[in-house]
Design a protein around this nucleic acid. Sequence first.
DNA 1: AGTTAAGCGAGACGGTACGTCTCGTCTTCGT
DNA 2: ACGAAGACGAGACGTACCGTCTCGCTTAACT
Lengths: 192, 192, 192, 192
Amino acid sequence: MHVAPLDPERDRAILDATMELLSEVGFDRMTVDQIAKRAKASKATIYRRWAGKPELVVDVICRRFDMDLPPGEDTGSLRGDLAALFRGLCESVERKHTLVIGLSSTLVSNQELARTLRAHMPAKDLGEVGALLERAVERGELAGPVDPGRLFGVAKALVWHRMIFTGPPIGEPFVAESVDGVLMPLVRAWAG
Amino acid sequence: MHVAPLDPERDRAILDATMELLSEVGFDRMTVDQIAKRAKASKATIYRRWAGKPELVVDVICRRFDMDLPPGEDTGSLRGDLAALFRGLCESVERKHTLVIGLSSTLVSNQELARTLRAHMPAKDLGEVGALLERAVERGELAGPVDPGRLFGVAKALVWHRMIFTGPPIGEPFVAESVDGVLMPLVRAWAG
Amino acid sequence: MHVAPLDPERDRAILDATMELLSEVGFDRMTVDQIAKRAKASKATIYRRWAGKPELVVDVICRRFDMDLPPGEDTGSLRGDLAALFRGLCESVERKHTLVIGLSSTLVSNQELARTLRAHMPAKDLGEVGALLERAVERGELAGPVDPGRLFGVAKALVWHRMIFTGPPIGEPFVAESVDGVLMPLVRAWAG
Amino acid sequence: MHVAPLDPERDRAILDATMELLSEVGFDRMTVDQIAKRAKASKATIYRRWAGKPELVVDVICRRFDMDLPPGEDTGSLRGDLAALFRGLCESVERKHTLVIGLSSTLVSNQELARTLRAHMPAKDLGEVGALLERAVERGELAGPVDPGRLFGVAKALVWHRMIFTGPPIGEPFVAESVDGVLMPLVRAWAG
DNA sequence: AGTTAAGCGAGACGGTACGTCTCGTCTTCGT
DNA sequence: ACGAAGACGAGACGTACCGTCTCGCTTAACT
């Protein structure tokens, strides 16, 4: 007996619509009807694939939520490399923050979702940051080695704080202020 | 003729219950019946005061959301003062973070709420931080003046980032790491 | 020590307002707040006097609604007198059946109230009916004396049954059918 | 396009639950939420079918409450047959008078509903009464034929009047008084 | 004249039920 | 398998009314 396979094209349309809506209105205010409508699908098609709304959202996170930053080019100076890194981080967070925020209140009372999300969060290759710092040492811009994790942690904190309490868009002034006012003084201090 | 005023005691009970529930389950999952039950009030009493759930929550934010830190004592050293400040900030954020998170997804699609919340966020008397820094200059721990707003901004960013992505409780190790690893190097760098 | 008596003026205002509203909107749609407002009284003043809405309305019926039938004229024949009596009864019941029906569900579970109402229901001076029957005996239309209470009881039953299960208005055909079909045969049989 | 029809299985569950609750707690104390809960239905499902509680109850009465009197046995005498009939009527009315009374105030302002209910009220097979009367004629107890509808109408009036203004229980004295004092004289008079 | 217990209008209050609505999920049709 | 449509359970929403309570004010004996 022939069994028609579930059309992968429909999967994508539904996942896309779900991610958009998650960002726009959050988990609770997002309805399955909205998803169906935006994906030009019927609710039956959704329920044929996923057991329910939470399962769909978990799948969205697993498949679509990659915080990869673009590889940082060598700009020739620590200041430039740091600014490029920070700018990339801003863009990445800007793209995902509404999704994270949309999910956040649900996470408090939904451990399953919280675990899944956390498992897909780090994603950033710290080697990138390490390389950036080593280049600076070689150039003589830094007196000694610096822990890349610590630096990236502060950078993330600055970006998320800005995003949550001021909201997008993030402009160049914020990048300059953060790099010149915080990150540069900090790495210099850490380097010795 | 006497006109019975709305009992302020009821206001408080309702606002308290609302704030608790906001923290526990978030805006969307919080129901008016839950609020009424917890406040030992009837729904009529709530609707006599506020036009609906959103209006009530806006009021909660306006009246109850004060991030006042306890006054920072002089501990005799910059490091001690900074640690005390940071610890107070952690406690304050720890108290409010579930509320903010509970509201956050709503804020995305509710500008009214977002604006109100933001207007009531700073609340921190920066004079406190300023005094702390001046004491350090007088003691000779810092070479020059430092912008208290900038320092407080970084501190807030660290605390909120930690709270959102790791969650409570915040322990002494995080305080030590933040003060010694970030704040102290930074103020020293800024002070010249 | 002085004890202030309940002001009878307030009684009247409340009873008046109640009667007006009863005829304007009926028992169910009339609220105690409306009564209070119209009587320029407070609900406390009402509840100080009556245990509830049904009790108040029963009192209204008792005091304001005496089921006085118009005095039955001598029409010259038993049939005519009976028809006049029955017609008067119909009108009387038609005027207040809505009230009694509105109360009925309360009466079922409140025997006290039911008894009170019942005590004021007949209101009809049975002497009237007795006189009617005596005239018939004198005229030679009846062979002997008849219990007026029994006759009136059957008449009431016919009218109320009709009112409840068919509703107003009551027309002349019903009067004729009742008098000729039931009451006349019955009194003749009773008279021996 | 397909249109899902209302599931008749749900109809039954709701009607059953309603009838149970009606007999357990009565019309007034029965809430729509209780019905929904017991029928494992949602209120929406109920309100999709009926406009409100009264309409639902009328439907219950119409579908589930046929006023069938127990078949009247031949007791050997007109007086005995009449008494048996009247007793059966009393029991039947006693069983459902609370229901009708609970509805009565709604019926006053809802002619549509009143008509529906009325159409399902008699339900009594008048053939029964007719047979009873014919037996009496055959026995020689009655001089001629009698209209069974007219007799039954008077009987109903007596019972309902008693029920509404005196309430249950109805005892044997009332039966005796009604049969001997009203019904017997009446049929004899009608029979000529 | 002053005291004082009560009545009074106003209206807030807790409670309960209502009828409406939205939403997640399931089911059926016709393509 | 898919879209369209909509029934269903669950349960929140905002409204209405009930009967109770508290508030300040007034009234009319009794001091």
